[in-house]
Design a protein around this nucleic acid. Structure first.
Ligand SMILES: [Mn+2]
Ligand SMILES: [Mn+2]
Ligand SMILES: [Zn+2]
Ligand SMILES: [Zn+2]
Lengths: 132, 132
DNA sequence: TGCTTGACAAGAACTATTCTAATGTGATAT
DNA sequence: ATATCACATTAGAATAGTTCTTGTCAAGCA
């Protein structure tokens, strides 16, 4: 696809498949989920390729690495500033596209140069609250 | 110490050492840091004991497990509602004791029952910004 | 054509964490 | 005091997620 050109990495079939899987994906998939899906089309796909590609994309700001699921990294192709709501049972992650006015008061800033913030909301999703 | 009685777990020398190390600790230590420090006094200390104790404490709400450092869990003996500022270079974590009024707008709530939230501020600490 | 660069696959290595099995210990019951 | 029981502790194995290493290959270029 032409729309991936500007990323600045060499586009290979494997990478296009990864990019297509990520494009518009709102599930915040893990490396394993990406691997599972993409290796359907490319059965020789290696895990290393998934990680290498994700790292290259993250470095260039095309995806975000989320540190919100305690068991693994999850990746977000939506790099707009937004926040997340995570189900503490099944780890499903939903977007929260709301802007909050957040600033660290000087007394707590400890001389840090603050570059960003992220709000993690925790809760129980409907599916998890139904099955007791 | 008597002040640990109400936690409701059997107090052993190893556990007391862990509790003493955590008590008032503002460094958000990892399991490894706790192990390193406590095993100075108890050289036969096992990693399993550290994890078992941390799990027991977390279950009872006496410490928090922080999912904010991408490489490992960090533990916080301060269970008051507060937020954190993390240096993206050295992973130093500082407390931000400020109350923010945060709510997930209904349109993004997706039927979740929201139980809590946590703000992660990212930045560069003075030490890291000095050494280029 | 031969060189250079980067991507790929496979698997080893590594790190953090959890699990297992054997042993120890302290409290309680006899 | 002794037996019993419920947990704690230990060492190490096992697991999961991620990163590293090595050999191979293909595309772009001199
Ligand atoms: Mn998102
Ligand atoms: Mn804290
Ligand atoms: Zn759920
Ligand atoms: Zn720092």
């Amino acid at each position: 696809m032409e729309k991936y050109k500007k990323i600045g990495i060499k586009l290979t079939p494997q990478r296009l498949a990864i990019l297509d899987f990520l494009d518009g994906n709102k599930d915040h998939p893990s490396a394993e989920e990406i691997y599972r899906e993409v290796s359907k089309r490319f059965p020789t796909m290696s895990f290393a390729t998934v990680y290498n590609t994700l790292e290259a994309l993250a470095e260039r700001g095309n995806i975000l690495e989320l540190t919100i699921d305690p068991h693994k990294k999850r990746f977000d192709p939506n790099t707009e500033l937004h926040h997340h709501l995570i189900c503490t049972k099944c780890k499903r992650i939903e977007d929260v596209h709301t802007h909050f006015e957040l600033a660290v008061p000087g007394m707590h800033r400890k001389g840090f140069e603050v570059t960003g913030n992220h709000v993690a909301f925790y809760g129980i999703c409907p599916a998890c609250s139904h099955r007791t």
